[in-house]
């Protein structure tokens, strides 16, 4: 055997090792991907099946004759507790709570970040530290104090109603929930925007000041239009958290017509009149998950970009 032969066989061995490495890596990735997608897959196929097919067949099998019946029933007729009007009303409850809560907490977070980085005041680090601390407060410890505050707000709303004929929305469970989520989310949104704006050039603010722009003009005309990545990150984060929240929802709007989607879904699944309608449950769960899925698909690529943007100073 010559030296050259040895080199060739070495190179061959290395190439083979590389191939094996690839196979192992992609194999593992594939397995985990399948594992993660499995529940979604089962939900999806089950929601398109009839009850007969579910009882008789394989959980993983594709539906023989796909039907939207279960989706229609979940939306319009499924029973939530004693009322059987489907989940549509609760879906809108969630929308009515999430959209204002996300919008308000994002705008306030942006304003906080703007002030904390560009209009520094004495003690700004302390304020930011406290805001940061708010991110680490567990949900559970907020429950009781918040219930007291909401109680006071509700009482104030009743007073308003008896004097002005309207409570201005104070005490309405949906408004209450939105308020809770704004307060709880503010720490996170402030953190996101503060870090993003810390890397935002101060000279732009100075230039705008020389141009005669005021505090809010600089915010709306200069800061906000240049914040798309971090706005997307914040909106996705807040939307997913608030939409998926169950604890606050069940604590402050856990009964009656004001229930948000998550609580209603739980009730659909727990309302058993005879057979468990898996296809309807799955369809309801899919409907509940749809908005967050859509948000990810539409804005997902900005999400990654936005997360990176804070990391690398531009």
């Amino acid at each position: 055997m010559t030296v050259l032969d040895m080199d060739v066989s070495d190179a061959k061995r290395m190439a083979r090792m590389r191939v094996i490495n690839r196979i192992v890596i992609y194999g593992l990735l594939g397995i985990f991907a399948v594992l993660y997608l499995m529940p979604l897959f089962v939900m999806l196929v089950t929601s398109f099946k009839t009850m007969d097919e579910i009882q008789g067949g394989n959980m993983l099998a594709l539906p023989r004759s796909p039907t939207l019946d279960a989706w229609v029933k979940a939306w319009g007729q499924a029973c939530v507790g004693l009322t059987c009007n489907g989940i549509s009303g609760y879906f809108w409850n969630s929308i009515k709570m999430v959209v204002p809560a996300v919008a308000v907490s994002t705008v306030l977070g942006a304003l906080n970040g703007y002030v904390l980085t560009k209009w520094r005041f004495r003690g700004h680090t302390l304020v930011f530290g406290l805001m940061l601390f708010a991110c680490f407060i567990p949900f559970q410890s907020v429950l009781l104090p918040m219930a007291t505050i909401l109680g006071n707000i509700t009482r104030f709303g009743i007073t308003l109603r008896s004097t002005f004929g309207t409570s201005f929305g104070l005490g309405d469970p949906t408004a209450n929930l939105a308020f809770v989520h704004v307060v709880y989310g503010l720490g996170f949104t402030t953190l996101f925007f503060r870090n993003y704006y810390a890397a935002f050039p101060d000279e732009l603010i100075k230039a705008a000041q020389m141009d005669g722009a005021g505090f809010f003009q600089i915010f709306w005309r200069i800061m906000v239009p240049n914040s798309l990545p971090i706005i997307v990150v914040t909106v996705i984060y807040q939307f997913t958290n608030i939409w998926n929240d169950y604890l606050f929802a069940s604590a402050y709007a856990g009964t009656g017509d004001a229930m948000p989607m998550t609580v209603a879904l739980n009730n659909v699944v727990n309302t058993s009149t005879g057979v468990v309608e898996y296809n309807v449950n799955m369809a309801a769960a899919m409907i509940a998950a749809l908005p967050t899925l859509i948000i990810y698909v539409v804005a997902g690529r900005y999400f990654v970009r936005g997360l990176m943007a804070g990391a690398v100073k531009g």
Partner: peptide, 20 residues
């Protein structure tokens, strides 16, 4: 006086052009 009231214009090191 506020910067905008001093009748001054400034060119910055980073140019500070509004990117949007």
């Amino acid at each position: 006086l506020h910067p905008s009231k001093r009748d001054i214009a400034m060119v910055f090191q980073s140019y500070a052009l509004y990117p949007n």
